[in-house]
């Protein structure tokens, strides 16, 4: 919305909430709570879409669809992929935030 302070605020929220969600997805997966994995992935997808992180959103949608719509279990590799993607997004967001501050 053309307001650097507001963009920085959104980035901070995305970094904090996104990290909590990724951690919770990992915990739910480790305990094989697949419905929670799907719900958390769905939620993270919404946040990712809002900041334009389309790869992260696609990955979340795929996890959500697999566990909730198809009722299947996902492989640990997909969770690791999600964690990596979020780290990449977080790095990019931090870069944007630094650029806004300079």
């Amino acid at each position: 919305m053309g307001d650097p302070a507001f963009t920085a605020e959104l980035i901070d929220i995305m970094l904090d909430d996104g990290q909590v969600r990724v951690t919770n997805i990992r915990a739910a997966y480790d305990q094989q709570r697949m419905t929670d994995v799907g719900a958390l992935a769905h939620s993270l997808k919404g946040a990712a879409l809002n900041i334009g992180a389309s790869n992260l959103a696609t990955l979340c949608a795929s996890i959500d669809d697999t566990v909730r719509k198809l009722g299947l279990t996902i492989e640990a590799q997909r969770i690791a992929e999600l964690e990596r993607e979020f780290s990449d997004v977080a790095r990019e967001l931090n870069d944007i935030k630094d650029a806004l501050g300079s």
């Binding site: 959104l10 909430d17 919404g46």
Partner: peptide
């Protein structure tokens, strides 16, 4: 009402605007 704070803060800002 949204559990995603990014969406909620964005909505709040846009609604006020």
């Amino acid at each position: 009402v949204d559990d995603d704070r990014v969406t909620l803060v964005t909505l709040e800002r846009l609604l006020a605007k």
